[in-house]
């Protein structure tokens, strides 16, 4: 009969122990530096190489480019850049292949929205999402 008494002792001991829960969402939850949150996109760095769209396993990135407004310069600049966060799995592959680090991860992770439409993030939104940007990509 001793077995369950020991168990009762264990739970009683836990009664006064320090609580391990965090105060999220009152206090923001600090993610480690490598955390893969929502992407930040800086249009000026993008060279429209399309690698991110190609490597994406769920094909959630759609982008279009146009030729450089300055006719002397070669290459393209980005025109539209959309990520569909309904299907994005935050796998990190797009930031891994990006040669210019135009697309990088941030530590922000709160994506809840009332409408699915809000989950389509466009270039401007991704550009403005520039807090807690990840250092190494």
């Amino acid at each position: 009969m001793l077995g369950f008494a020991k168990g009762l002792g264990y739970t009683l001991k836990k009664l006064s122990e320090k609580k391990i829960t965090t105060l999220y969402p009152d206090v923001p939850y600090q993610m480690p530096p490598r955390f893969r949150g929502i992407q930040h996109f800086s249009p000026e760095k993008c060279i429209v190489c399309n690698q991110c769209a190609r490597v994406c396993p769920t094909e959630c990135i759609q982008l279009t480019g146009r030729s450089h407004p300055d006719p002397d310069k070669k290459g393209k600049i980005i025109d539209t850049y959309d990520i569909n966060f309904e299907i994005c799995i935050l796998c990190d592959l797009c930031t891994e292949v990006c040669p210019t680090e135009a697309i990088v991860m941030t530590n922000n992770f709160e994506l809840a929205a009332y409408s699915r439409d809000e989950l389509y993030k466009d270039l401007k939104w991704l550009d403005d999402n520039n807090t807690n940007v990840r250092e190494e990509n």
Binding site: P32, R34, F35, R36, I89, D92
Partner: peptide
């Protein structure tokens, strides 16, 4: 999470 940047996947 510290190692790979995600908690589950």
């Amino acid at each position: 999470n510290e190692l790979s940047g995600a908690r589950l996947t």
